[in-house]
Design a protein around this nucleic acid. Structure first.
Lengths: 151, 151
DNA sequence: CATAAAAGGTATGTGTACATACCTTTTATG
DNA sequence: CATAAAAGGTATGTACACATACCTTTTATG
């Protein structure tokens, strides 16, 4: 299946990637809801970044998980509504909002993390362990090539 | 990088896939806009499905490109506003809306297809041709495993 | 053939995703 | 040190993405 001008759209990388993302999101939502959680993949990613870096401001959170600052604003809004984080104005920079987990947020994160870790394998269920490893390596290579980036 | 409970979120499959999709969408939008087109990846996918199957109804289009019928409704709305497609009530089933390309839609599709084909390689720029092939094969395997599906 | 179930679409609501514009605050520059 | 440029956030607008509810029409079943 070469990427010639004759290739069907459904065989193109972009289309396959979109479907992969659909699949990934669906597995995440179904599995976590089954366990009684109410978090989206993005909300979980933000929670993770804040857990690892208490007091991080929104711009830094956005950069860490590769998001637009406008998007992250809304995500933090919803995490705040759910009582998982609190925002406070930074003393060193009055423009910045520092974000921290509440006890509820920390507890939720601790409880959901093993489930999220586990469901990663479910997303890649079509691949054996060696292929899963291969897949991850290829994706990391693609992402790194596309942007001089962080992690 | 095994997927252990200790794995960082940014190394998890779900997160990598989300970033891949971001990248893919960005390349699509930037390249096609550079060439003067105003189409999203989803709009292009719909256009392709209609091009290949004139008179297809919305439910069938949605199934072909793996979308929710509610989402496809909006996508077709916008393609109609741009003058690329027309909708008509099916004679054999008055619930169904048959969708067809206009001359403008056909011309736009013909002109944008080579650009979209080309940009697929740009998305996977970090991989050599053999790895790109490997990547596509792995993704197809994942998607097929996740759903008894069409193509 | 009457009625229930199913299917095609639209409407509504939530949540990304991001561009652009805007306001405030900070930093850089002359 | 005044002012411009840059950075942090919010607001607004467009476009997915999908769940749920709802209406209409078709199909299945007794």
């Amino acid at each position: 299946m070469q990427n010639t001008p004759n290739m069907n759209v459904t065989g193109m990388a972009g289309h396959l990637i979109r479907r992969l993302n659909q699949l990934s999101t669906q597995v995440f939502m179904h599995r976590t809801q089954e366990e009684g959680f109410d978090l989206t993949p993005v909300q979980f990613a933000a929670l993770d970044a804040i857990y690892a870096n208490p007091g991080l401001d929104q711009a830094r959170i956005a950069a860490k998980i590769a998001y637009d600052k406008a998007t992250i604003g809304g995500v933090i809004d919803r995490l705040e509504q759910k009582g998982f984080v609190v925002r406070s104005i930074s003393k060193s920079d009055r423009r910045a909002r520092e974000v921290r987990l509440t006890n509820s947020g920390r507890k939720t994160y601790d409880n959901i993390l093993p489930i999220v870790s586990e469901l990663q394998t479910e997303i890649l269920a079509g691949l054996d362990p060696k292929q899963q490893e291969q897949f991850r390596n290829l994706v990391v290579k693609i992402i790194h090539a596309a942007s001089g980036n962080q992690e």
